[in-house]
Design a binder for these strands. Structure first.
Length: 272
DNA sequence: AGGTGCACCTGATGGC
DNA sequence: TGCCATCAGGTGCACC
């Protein structure tokens, strides 16, 4: 489910409400991607700080007690609830506080909740260490993108998705950004010209920004922490539109597979 | 070092 | 209705 816009929309939907809350209990459901790595008892009584986002990860600082790194995987979502309903089959992590319950629902369990003493302490430091620039970081521009892509033989689509150059664009937004920039997703990354790198960097920011404004993309189950769905799927130009006419030129949108993931593009508007 | 494929897990959907 | 194959918003890791 969640790419950067969905994670950021989720963060904004509960960060203020949970900040300053006192942890009163933790409940672990079925195993997630990694063990939490801490005795839940040791976190009781700590205060929640200001929730941060890095890439598609969220960092929940716990005053004097390190913090929790959360990832939503493919199917995860967070809810911040006033009441404390009994956990359902896919509710695998509950953080009870005196201001409400932060609950992770994740059917596929590719998500994670991992404790660390600090953001720069293991295992979090390693998980975040390989991440590229934030798309809205002023250092992320065509110059940076072009330099980072030089010599790389993978397709530009896969290079975007890898997250080691710029974070945040997953399968939907990588496709959409490449469409916006008019770039064929199969183009070898190292062959992208400098002017087109400028265009692509701008497109990544624009697409992610538009998705953020739309409250994210809800294909089936994405909700923010108050249950509000996103609407960016209404504006998607190529993602999920195989065989339908390109909204710009009416050529049928194509679907191909790159790195075992679907890529959608317009064979006429997007050039090598 | 960069590229490739696999692994993790559950549910929805479509064809026969 | 049942069964099987395919697909899905992510990413760390082993291996070449």
């Amino acid at each position: 489910m969640p790419e950067l816009p969905e994670v950021e929309v989720t963060r904004r939907s509960f960060a203020d409400a949970i900040q300053g809350a006192r942890v009163t209990g933790l409940r672990l459901g079925k195993p997630l991607r990694w063990p939490i790595g801490v005795d839940p008892e040791t976190l009781l009584g700590s205060r929640v700080g200001s929730t941060q986002r890095r890439g598609k990860y969220l960092w929940l600082p716990l005053e004097n007690r390190g913090g929790l790194l959360m990832h939503l995987g493919m199917s995860g979502s967070l809810a911040f609830l006033e009441a404390t309903p009994a956990p359902g089959a896919h509710d695998h992590f509950d953080l009870h506080t005196d201001r409400g319950l932060l609950r992770l629902t994740d059917p596929r369990r590719f998500g994670a909740v991992v404790w660390a003493a600090a953001l720069d302490a293991e295992p979090v430091a390693t998980l975040l260490g390989g991440l590229g620039l934030e798309p809205f970081d002023e250092r992320f521009d065509g110059l940076h993108l072009h330099a980072a892509l030089s010599g790389r033989r993978v397709s530009i689509k896969q290079a975007l998705l890898a997250g080691d150059i710029v974070v945040g664009a997953g399968n939907i937004y990588a496709c959409e950004a490449l469409f916006m920039a008019g770039i064929d997703p199969r183009l070898p990354a190292g062959k992208l010209s400098r002017p087109r790198a400028d265009k692509l960097a701008a497109a990544v920011r624009t697409v992610l920004g538009q998705a953020l404004e739309a409250g994210g993309t809800t294909l089936r189950d994405f909700r923010d922490a108050h249950g509000v769905a996103g609407s960016f799927q209404m504006q998607a130009q190529v993602y999920g539109r195989e065989g339908l006419p390109c909204l710009r030129c009416a050529t049928p949108i194509r679907r191909i597979v790159q790195g075992q993931r679907s890529t959608f593009f317009c064979p006429s508007c997007q050039k090598r």
